[in-house]
Amino acid sequence: MKEKIYSVLVEEVGEFKAKAILRGAYHYFGIEKDKEAEDLLLPILERVRLSLNGENLKSSKVDGVMRRLQSMFPEVKRVQTEEEHIAIESEEDIRMAQMRAKIKAQALGFNGLDQTKIATTVAELTRNIIKYAGKGTVTLIPLLTDERALKIVAEDNGPGITNLSDVLSGTYDSKQGLGMGLLAIKRLMDSFEVETNSGVGTRIVVIKYIK
């Protein structure tokens, strides 16, 4: 995988930049030198895209390089249609989840602003999981009906939210900021539902439509 990406980058931006960009992308995810990371293909490609943007290339050039890279990996196509299940167990997973959400949103055709809103929502959801439940899961579900959309489900078996109505009406001001986070999610998404049971857990389902 590394070799394939490298060979395209060398042709497009030259050996020197190709090496720096690829090394940067692998390093970002803490992948050791000479190791492969097939399951991180999409996050790695996203880092490559950010680095290419950082090189002040024309956006058409960046798009072209990315199309070449994506066409080499058929699994990229699957991102548009398949559900993605992400285990949230440590703070590192927050960054990973928000990046995967951004990539999925991009693949589905959301504009840059909505990609940011989706990634921010996932950041809030996953941070709440880590903070209050310790661990949980986030599932990204593409909805490919007439109205294309991304559905995000966050689940945990934590203590639950006991004062949900206060939190959502904005009258409850949490020191740790749960209130702010949930309200923010509600404002950023088109649909927002919470199921929570004290001592059993919390399930939050949000949907964002492509406009």
Binding site: A119, T120, A123, E124, R127, G177, M180, G181
Partner: peptide, 10 residues
């Protein structure tokens, strides 16, 4: 920075 969530803002 690509994402600012409520935690980061605080």
């Amino acid at each position: 920075i690509d994402i600012i969530d409520s935690f980061f803002c605080r």
